[in-house]
Design a binder for these strands. Structure first.
Length: 583
RNA sequence: GCGCCCUUAGCUCAGUUGGAUAGAGCACGAGCCUUCUAAGCUCGGGGUCGCAGGUUCGAAUCCUGUAGGGCGCGCCA
């Protein structure tokens, strides 16, 4: 389906033919032969560097070699002309009928257009959100949630077997604090006056409801009991309540995970001990004393012996501790074991989506994956930079203490999930992002969500008008597939098809690079091309889609249908609903 | 002090894994439209890709150094 890949095969076939005929030395390495759209449209439709890449090994002058290959490519039925340019590029211009064929591909495939097999069914695990189960999600979490969710959808479209996973950090001291905070709210629910929430406990109102729920379920069972009696059951209850709340918030954003992995279960099942022994057996564990970080010794620094993993042997900057002084595992130890667990569940490809504040953690986890999987597991960590929440250009002040903390749910309620999802992808994940609540819902040219949605709505509007104005034209897909496209000759029309035909390549490229934001950018470009064509109809009534000549109108309806389908296909990956009309 | 990320037009940012004359939106400038396919259209000016070296046919992209900004830096997760 990716036409550039198709031409790449054609080119490699030509090279092989030339080798067979003795015109080129045998066994040339064609791995670096690229086939892509040229930067300048004037150069044609497809460009290849084959001659420049093979010139040296073939001991030929690049332009001369290019001429040889271009001559063979010129014979191809889809190629109108093949010319040699610059230092040895071969530029192919494709026949108009070729593009008409690609439009038919789109209409035939529907929103499945762009589906690819490059993933070849390989299993990928995308772990994202993984927010601590101690409170509601805030806006900062939204970015990682969207990036992970769309990346997963993108990989699935590209033919990978994707599992979406959430790692529940339910094992550390913080969930004990959560349990104590719940106990307070539980007493409150049973009529006690608790006053101010003591320092060190979670003061948020969100635990009140959980306190009432616990009181309803268990009555006065935990009143007056010592902490060691109620801690574990209340902790479980609280985590459950928090996870339910988090999942509800995520669902409102359209984010649903396949698997939830518990850190506590990992530890209790002995899988951390197992990973530790594995490292020990490989001689990667020792007891040592770390130097303080140069230039910023912490105030309470004192040298002490620790159980360390030799992560420096795998590219880390210092060796990392695996045990706390009380003998329990550090977070890193269980996270290392968690990644081994994912690998053993069949995921040789693992993607973690984290906030930028965890950037310092990447090397040690990568080192652990490398050591534990003997280099067979591939980990890619996508770090999401900060999101600044604005309202009409003014920063929204956020502070947990002042209670002006903006939750994910509030933002989704305010602007809608589709807007949040799209805006979160209008920047590369490693650039910071401004999210302006006001601008996000404006219906103007510079709101990308509106702009793309509007293109789809306009396409729908054309079909609504066609039904009343041109009732003789059958507009179902199978009818449109049989329409003659010969009248589609305008450069803008062919340009639009060319863009649509580039969709499969965008999907593959974005999936392989793990860069979901490319989809949002592509959709803006596609929408712009369609709006341009539409505007042409404003100035020149012959350029409208619904013209008196029914054969021509039908061909243009096929074009509009194709556009509508590719936009819908892209929005589907983003998890954004394509709207049929604006209001 | 060390590590990671960022630095591209006045502003906010893309840049197809090393390709040809570096792009988009906004802003700015000049025209057009006063209508229908609703919330404008066309054209234009604007760049030493932070800086300096290196790698090669070819660098915004890779390597080294350097400046500025962000994040992080021994038992928190």
């Amino acid at each position: 389906m990716n036409l550039f890949r198709d031409f790449q095969y054609e080119i490699i076939k030509v090279i092989e033919d030339l080798e067979q005929e003795g015109l080129l030395p045998r066994g040339l390495d064609t791995a670096r032969v690229a086939c892509e759209p040229p930067r300048e449209a004037a150069y044609g439709d497809v460009t290849t560097n084959v001659a420049m890449v093979l010139a040296k090994p073939a001991q030929r002058n690049p332009r001369e070699l290019a001429a040889l290959v271009a001559e063979r490519l010129g014979i191809h039925h889809a190629v109108e002309k093949a010319i040699v340019a610059g230092p040895g590029f071969i530029n192919l211009t494709l026949a108009r009928t070729f593009w008409h064929g690609r439009l038919r591909d789109v209409v035939e495939a529907g929103t499945a257009y762009g589906d690819s097999t490059v993933g070849a069914g390989r299993e990928v695990n995308v772990e994202y959100v993984s927010a601590n189960p101690t409170g509601p999600m805030h806006v900062g979490h939204a970015r990682g949630a969207v990036v992970g969710d769309v990346l997963a959808a993108l990989l699935a479209k590209a033919g990978f077997d994707v599992t979406k996973e959430y790692y529940v950090n339910d094992a550390g001291a913080q969930v004990d604090v959560l349990a104590r905070s719940l106990h307070l709210r539980y007493r409150e629910a049973l009529g006690e006056t608790i006053g101010a929430v003591p320092e060190g406990l979670y003061p948020g109102e969100y635990l009140k409801e959980a306190g009432h729920a616990l009181a309803r379920r268990d009555g006065e069972k935990w009143l007056g009991e010592p902490e060691d009696v109620w801690l574990a059951p209340l902790r479980a209850f609280a985590i459950d309540a928090m996870m339910t709340m988090i999942c509800d918030d995520l669902a409102a954003l359209g984010v649903v995970h396949d698997v939830f992995s518990s850190e506590r279960a990992l530890v209790e099942s002995g899988r951390v001990d197992e990973a530790f022994r594995l490292l020990e057996d490989r001689g990667l564990i020792y007891t040592g004393v770390l130097d303080p970080p140069k230039g910023m010794t912490p105030e309470d620094w004192e040298p002490r012996p620790q159980t360390l993993f030799r992560s420096t042997e795998f590219g880390d900057d210092v060796d990392r501790p695996l045990r706390k002084s009380d003998g329990t595992w550090t977070y890193f130890a269980s996270d290392a074991a968690y990644h081994l667990d994912k690998f053993r569940r069949g995921f040789a490809i693992m993607i973690d989506v984290w906030g930028a504040d965890h950037g310092g953690y990447v090397k040690r986890v990568a080192a652990a994956v490398n050591a534990l999987t003997e280099g067979k597991g591939a980990l890619d960590v996508k770090l999401c930079q900060l999101v600044s929440l604005l309202d009409a250009g003014e920063p929204v002040k956020m502070s947990k203490r002042a209670g002006t903390f903006v939750t994910l749910k509030e933002v989704v309620d305010e602007v809608g999930k589709d807007v949040v999802r799209f805006i979160m992808l209008t920047r590369s994940n490693d650039a910071t992002l401004d999210f302006d609540l006001r601008k996000a819902v404006e219906q103007t040219r510079d709101n990308p969500v509106f702009y793309v949605q509007y293109a789809h709505a306009r396409a729908c509007s054309v079909f609504r008008n066609a039904a009343t104005e041109m009732p003789n034209i059958a507009t179902d897909d199978s009818s449109l597939l049989n329409v003659s496209l010969d009248s589609l000759t305008a450069v803008e029309e062919i340009d639009l098809i060319r863009l649509m035909a580039g969709w499969p390549r965008i999907v593959e490229g974005a999936a392989e690079a793990h860069e979901p934001h490319r989809i949002a950018y592509y959709l803006q470009e596609l929408a712009a091309a369609f709006h341009g064509l539409w505007n042409k109809g404003n100035a020149d009534s012959d350029a409208r889609f619904l013209v008196a000549d029914e054969a021509r109108a039908a061909a243009r309806l096929a074009l509009v249908r194709g556009l509508q389908l590719v936009i819908a296909s892209g929005l589907q990956v983003l998890g954004v609903k394509p709207v049929e009309e604006m209001h």
